[in-house]
């Protein structure tokens, strides 16, 4: 694997302040003052191989994948359907153990699931059916040690951010697919985790809502030092949100290329068009129907 584009220094998290609502974001939002040499990666994925046992046979989904995520970075996982993006995310979350290689977080190898890595799953049925929307967001906060009132207030704030205040007292089965996904996003954001692991969180939303939430996510990332691992099908979304894009190939997947898109945010520049063309090529080389899969 190789990296394309200028190597820019990533933002490093300053201390442990992860208050989303706070005013502390500015000090770490420019990304030009720290260097990689001054710290170590938050997450290291090192020659990881993951498979599922089907009928007694190991079915390898992720062949050999390596990349690093630095504190405060937004890494996009891009690749064709079925290439193992969700599998990789679940391994980082601690649900699946790789059959080869290592995943380490802040140097620790044996990773267990925990609220420091809040997951937004791809599946719609990830809400507790027996809890209302408000409760689905507040309960995890209670479990991780917040006071009742504080948990409820925080939950309200994030539910409002997702535009779901009107549905706060409903049960999940009374919501549409996109609404459920937004509740799951609210739940993950409200936890104010060290890392957000998001599996195509905006996949089922309409264009306007998606654009608004993409901007909201960018704002949160700018205000805080949250590190994001984000799975997407969409080149547009990868470019808009990401610092670097990890492009995976067909299963058993390997990293095709890691593209730095930190400074490629203006769609009108030559550079943007060039990087987008490159990403399209990478995906198309993988036999994906370019027109269909890439444009949203």
């Amino acid at each position: 694997m190789r990296e394309q584009g200028e190597r820019h220094t990533p933002r490093l998290s300053e201390g442990t302040n992860r208050d989303f609502g706070g005013e502390h974001g500015d000090a770490v939002s420019t990304g030009s003052t720290e260097t990689r040499a001054s710290g170590r990666p938050l997450l290291t994925v090192d020659h990881v191989r993951i498979g599922y046992v089907v009928d007694g046979r190991l079915n390898v989904a992720v062949g050999d994948v390596s990349f690093e995520i630095w504190p405060g970075e937004k890494i996009m996982l891009l690749g064709p359907s079925g290439c193992g993006k969700s599998t990789l995310l679940k391994a980082v979350a601690g649900f699946i153990e790789p059959v080869g290689g290592h995943i380490s977080i802040e140097g620790h190898d044996l990773i267990q699931p925990g609220p420091d890595r809040a997951v937004v799953f791809q599946e719609f049925d990830q809400l507790f059916p027996w809890r209302t929307v408000a409760d689905n967001v507040a309960y995890p906060l209670r479990v991780t040690g917040k006071e009742k009132n504080e948990a409820e207030a925080t939950a309200r704030r994030f539910i409002e951010m997702m535009g779901l205040s009107h549905a706060a007292e409903r049960y999940p089965h009374q919501l549409s697919g996109g609404m459920k996904q937004r509740v799951a996003i609210a739940r993950a954001l409200a936890l104010e985790p060290l890392m957000l692991l998001m599996d195509e969180p905006f996949g089922s939303l309409d264009a306007q809502t998606r654009t608004r939430l993409q901007k909201e996510l960018n704002d949160i990332a700018d205000r805080t030092s949250v590190t994001i691992l984000f799975v997407t099908h969409s080149i547009q979304e990868a470019l808009l949100l990401g610092h670097r894009v990890v492009v995976l190939g067909q299963p058993p997947s390997e990293v095709e290329e890691i593209v730095d898109v930190r400074n490629v945010k203006d769609p009108d520049t030559e550079e943007f068009i060039e990087v987008r063309r490159r990403l399209r090529e990478l995906l198309a080389g993988e036999g994906e129907d370019v027109d269909h899969a890439i444009f949203e």
Binding site: A93, G94, F95, P113, V119, D125, Q126, L127, Y139, V143
Partner: peptide, 29 residues
């Protein structure tokens, strides 16, 4: 029990009896 719900519970750091009480039991109700 739906494996995704179980993963959500574990993602919140729930283990042992608390996972059973707050996730498995209501899910199996």
């Amino acid at each position: 029990v739906n494996p995704t719900i179980l993963m959500v519970g574990r993602n919140l750091g729930l283990r042992g009896f608390k996972l059973v009480k707050d996730v498995l039991m209501p899910a199996a109700l």
